[in-house]
């Protein structure tokens, strides 16, 4: 099994940390992982993206032009990465703020109203975990117990009290993801 994922959105949406939690979850089940961010003059409000690869084998290139799954969280990223999904692959997006919706017919397209659900849950910070939950519904590549372990590993100890809330957000994502 090798899963090549791009997560793309605004800086500050938790794109990089979502990728990190996913990568840590992979480590918890003895997989090889790679996490390659776009880096540079980006900051809060600018674009941010990260490539995450989970595999049972040694990972070759961390730089890819095609992905099994694209998780897209803003319009610029939609414009850039819709075409980067492999035929037969998955595009998961939050329609909030998207004006041009994906139009490809050779891939499976799913939506998750994560921004809305995060607001309803009373914590905008859970946004990325809701998206992660939605992704795991579509591609259950890591076990829930390993997501929790991954969270514990990647969050500093002072944030450990927020783990139950984060796991709730993951569960919410599993529930509200819908096929387009």
């Amino acid at each position: 099994m090798t899963e090549e994922i791009i997560i793309a959105g605004f800086g500050g949406q938790g794109v990089l940390s979502m990728g990190k939690i996913l990568a840590y979850s992979g480590i918890m089940q003895d997989q090889e992982v790679a996490w390659m961010p776009s880096y540079g003059p980006e900051m809060r409000g600018g674009t941010a993206n990260v490539t995450v690869i989970l595999s049972d084998e040694r990972i070759s290139s961390p730089i890819l032009n095609q992905f099994d799954t694209a998780i897209i969280l803003n319009q610029q990223s939609m414009d850039k990465f819709e075409k980067a999904v492999k035929p037969g692959g998955i595009l998961l997006y939050d329609p909030n703020g998207i004006t041009r919706h994906p139009s490809r017919t050779d891939i499976s397209i799913y939506r998750v109203q994560a921004a809305e659900a995060a607001t309803a849950m009373g914590s905008a910070k859970t946004f990325n975990m809701i998206v992660l939950g939605a992704f795991l519904k579509l591609k259950p590549i890591v076990k829930m117990e390993n997501v929790e372990k991954g969270l514990t590993k990647s969050l500093p100890a002072r944030h450990h009290k927020s783990i139950p809330m984060n796991m709730e957000a993951v569960a919410k994502g599993l529930e509200i993801v819908e096929k387009v």
Binding site: E32, W35, P37, P62
Partner: peptide, 10 residues
């Protein structure tokens, strides 16, 4: 290089 320096792996 920047790829190896910035990338996270196990």
């Amino acid at each position: 290089d920047g790829v190896i320096g910035q990338m996270m792996e196990k």
